[in-house]
Design a protein around this nucleic acid. Structure first.
Length: 426
RNA sequence: GGAGGGAUGGCAGAGCGGUCGAAUGCGGCGGUCUUGAAAACCGCAGACCCGCAAGGGUCCAGGGGUUCGAAUCCCCUUCCCUCCUCCA
């Protein structure tokens, strides 16, 4: 959500932001409804003040035993009471409509975000490492995984459906080694506090992070008001919904491992081979709550924390500044980390690091006080994957494969794997 | 799933249909005193909305209702606690 004040003072700024993102949003509806609301509110409050005065008078007359005068005063309240009831009804309607419209307004892209409407306009900021050279034709992870008995996609599809991968043997251990090592790294080396959140959340939480109402189709529904999380971002961010933090709490750095569930509605057939796009996956998510003036520095730190894992794994990757139109609904600025997967011959997105500024904080009503007695202000919220496991799993297999079909285990994972190499039949 | 009991300011905890935005205690902040601190004493402090302001309005889990008037009465929902049931 944006500051309502901004719709009054600089609506063109909002229109420009929507245009840069290529999103049609009901900006004019918000402006109109906000105006109607304030006008109605002024009238209504005047009537309520009058009513309060009369009621007080009646109370006093009663106390003095002037019953008849009290009754006479009562008679005068009838019209006023009806007017107030009608006004309250109307206000409820306007509030609901205003809220509905507001929730569909995207966050505005920061000035530093590149222009453009799709990924072709994203800007590569930096690269780390190099594409590994092979003396043979590198295989894709689905072939490696099947040959080494690490990945059983057909049986996963049998028990759940396509897009529900099943990891087996050393494959399961590798998957576990990845998230285990990453959560340990972020909490022990990088100062994040570990959180293990619920996997199902209510609608209010989904609205708080900006997943609802616009992207309801993308998540699985488990019950009347219970939804499977598409990312730990949702429960972790909403941990502090409707709370006021103190300045000393900030910056609050949280790291959470969780399963993630996405319907990927409309994405059928697109980049879906192997582990490229799945309905269920594991991920370590990093979330920061900070003071507004710190959020852009924190975005750089967050990105560096996620990058550190790729460096530790020795995987070639690049950092991309996502353009306004490819960034989506919630972000003000976003960096994607893309790891090189030599088998599929492409860079795979394994992390999106975003600064949401106050967009989520306003929706979820998360504030802080600079000092005792100070007026609460909205925090800035950031998050980023650190990292998403399946694509990382794919990149590890493809990067460290050898000509004989075995895969070396990178040093970073050896303490958890207990082996230095994954070979056929192991 | 069944039966009860609860939800009030940072915390604890009063609250009788009007004098309750709410006693009191603790905690917090500012003083007095003190070389400094503690103790004692005095004082100040909730959130939100509209408004340049003056001021006004709303908020006692959330939502409806009764009433001229609701923290107080009625209904619904959510959450917490106790007991039973079930269960990794």
């Amino acid at each position: 959500m944006l500051d309502r004040q901004l719709f009054r003072t600089d609506p063109d700024l909002i229109r420009r932001g929507c245009a840069r993102k290529g999103i049609e949003a009901p900006v004019d509806d918000v402006i109109r409804l906000d105006g109607e609301r304030r006008e109605l509110l002024a009238t209504l409050e005047r009537q309520q003040a009058e009513m309060n005065r009369i009621s007080k008078t009646i109370g006093q007359l009663m106390a003095q035993g002037k019953r008849e005068e009290a009754e006479a005063a009562k008679a005068h309240t009838k019209d006023l009471k009806e007017a107030i009831a009608a006004g309250e009804q109307k206000l409820r309607e306007i509030d609901a409509a205003l809220r509905d419209a507001e929730l569909l307004i995207p966050n505005l892209p920061h000035d530093s975000v590149p222009d453009g409407l799709d990924e072709t306009c994203n800007v590569v900021l930096r690269e780390w490492g190099e594409k590994p050279a092979f003396a043979f034709e590198p295989k894709a992870h689905w072939d490696l995984g099947a040959a080494l008995g690490l990945l059983d996609l057909p049986r996963g599809a049998k028990v759940a459906g396509s897009g529900f991968p099943c990891y087996v043997g050393l494959g399961a251990r590798l998957q576990r080694a990845l998230f285990q090592s990453m959560i340990e790294f972020q909490t022990r080396e990088r100062g994040y506090t570990e959180v293990y959140p619920p996997y199902l959340v209510n609608r209010a939480s989904m609205v708080g992070t900006g997943n609802f109402p616009k992207f309801e189709e993308d998540v699985y529904r488990a019950d009347e008001d219970l939804w499977l999380i598409p990312t730990a971002e949702v429960p972790v961010t909403n941990l502090y919904r409707d709370e006021i933090l103190t300045a000393e709490d900030l910056t609050l750095n949280l790291a959470a491992f969780s399963g993630c569930f996405r319907r990927e509605a409309g994405a059928a057939g697109k980049d879906t081979r192997g582990l490229l796009r799945v309905h269920q996956f594991d991920k370590v998510e990093l979330v920061k709550f900070c003071k507004p003036e710190d959020s852009y520095d924190e975005l750089e730190k967050l990105t560096a924390d996620a990058e550190a894992v790729l460096k530790a794994l020795g995987l070639h990757y690049r950092v991309v500044a996502v353009c306004a139109g490819d960034m989506g609904f919630k972000g003000a600025k976003q960096y994607d980390l893309e790891v090189w997967a030599p088998g599929v011959g492409r860079y795979l997105e394994v992390s999106s690091c975003s600064n949401f500024e106050a967009f989520q904080a306003r929706r979820a009503n998360i504030r802080f006080r600079r000092e005792q007695g100070a007026k609460p202000e909205f925090v800035h919220i950031l998050n980023g994957s650190g990292l998403a496991c399946p694509r990382l799993f794919a990149a590890v297999l493809e990067t460290y494969q050898r000509e004989d079909g075995s895969v070396d285990v990178p040093d970073f994972l050896r303490p958890w794997m207990g082996v230095e190499r994954i070979g056929p039949g192991e």
